[in-house]
Design a protein around this nucleic acid. Structure first.
Lengths: 252, 252
DNA sequence: CGTGCCAGGTGCCGT
DNA sequence: ACGGCACTTGGCACG
């Protein structure tokens, strides 16, 4: 853990050369100060002078964060190579990435803080409440959708994409189910339509049901579903982590 | 600009109370250290012990960054309220957000760095190469699509969504144009199909052309377009910023 | 590699 | 506030 407060450009460069440049894959670098940012790659952008925090992560990711908003105003993807130099008494950060070809330049005219640290983190996020969880819920109890529904396949591949759930109803009619974790969208209707069409073609079945299954289905989407003789179910989503790891957040 | 290196939990709390708590909307807080994270809201997650950088932005946004990847592993949206306390000799960060209802807790068992700074940044990003730019390109020179095409409306609202560009060809046949800034997708074909259908219905026109316009159209998408009697144009995308602000990135 | 799709998507702009 | 949509979307899984 090394820090430099209000360093000059050359002091910052020395600091970076000493604590970051030789082992960037083991060192997260923070640079806070007044800067401009140029970016060219999938798009092209310019950002005028302002105070920001720049983070160079241990995998080469570079983030430029303004004092507000969740999203970085500029960034470089994982695997970028970053170099520093001085020009006109300003600290310059240049980084490049191949595939997609992108480059970004940050020029600092005033530095507030530079830090270099090695962060060790091998933990993986455990998360619940995703689409896969809703799918599992339905598989373990298909009556959520309707009585006597028999699920035979999940992630069934068709021409274009793959069907979340596939099965047969009590009359042995094929049923295609598209699952959404939160809001059903117009786009999900199109997905469902296409899957139903593919199944009809594949199986030469005149009748195939399609059900859009989501916690919430807006009116517009319902109307669109009706237009195409498709169905929907508004299912309650349970958000439960594996084990009994529910204890932690309780008190607050 | 205030910093505390390797503070104890209580030192950190005092530091935060002095430099952050009274004016969080003017102070970006960084906390680096070994922590666990609990989150509950639109989903539910747990993150085991590891070293991370936590950023509390001046608009209430909270980001938890691991040493790799562009995305924060956990976060709270803009407008969240964050509080600190000590429990079992650990510094605890609790934050809440309403609408969507979300809360997150971070517990630190070791601190490497705490900093508080006021960042001033009123600059806005100037960006080029977005969908809107491709649309403008076509409007200013419709021959990019074809000769004698007359564009009459952009962002034309229809039943479901809005059409990027609408006009008439040399034979006065209505033309719907869907524009993509990079890759045309299956989803964009569906959008186009729907818009063409809506226009046919609205205008009671038997013939309406639909053109998908993108820098690249994959074979699969072309096939799908053909199936539905739709067309495509692969247009070159120019990425040019307004003014002559092209100078800056040149040398590197 | 590309291709498709989910995401605690985020952010923007409309009704 | 809800909804529709683009995004330097990012990230992952699969052919």
């Amino acid at each position: 853990m090394h820090t430099a407060l209000h360093p000059s450009a050359s002091d910052a460069l020395h600091f970076i050369n000493e604590y970051h440049t030789s082992k960037p894959e083991k060192t997260m670098l923070l640079v806070m100060g007044e800067c401009i940012v140029d970016y060219q790659g999938r798009a092209r952008s310019l950002l005028d002078w302002g105070e920001r925090l720049i983070m160079i992560k241990q995998d080469g990711t570079v983030l430029v964060h303004q004092p507000v908003m969740r999203e970085p105003v500029n960034w470089q993807p994982t695997g970028s190579i970053t170099e520093f130099k001085i020009k006109d008494e300003q600290l310059i950060l240049n980084c490049r990435h191949l595939h997609p070809a992108e480059k970004m330049r940050v020029a600092f005219r005033r530095l507030k803080l530079v830090t270099a640290t090695s962060l060790v983190d091998h933990a993986n996020l455990i998360i619940a409440g995703m689409e896969i969880d809703v799918v599992n819920q339905i598989v373990s109890d298909p009556t959520i959708i309707e009585e006597n529904l028999r699920i035979v396949k999940r992630e069934k591949p068709v021409k274009t994409g793959s069907i979340d759930l596939f099965g047969f109803d009590k009359n042995h009619v094929p049923v295609v189910i598209e699952v959404k974790r939160s809001l059903a969208t117009i786009s999900s209707v199109h997905q469902l339509r296409m899957y139903v069409k593919d199944i009809k073609k594949d199986r030469k079945e005149p009748k195939v049901r399609g059900i859009l299954c989501a916690p919430r289905v807006p009116d517009m989407v319902k109307k669109l579903l009706e237009e195409h003789n498709l169905e929907w179910r508004e299912v309650e989503r349970k958000v439960v982590l594996p084990d009994n790891r529910q204890r932690t957040l309780k008190e607050f």
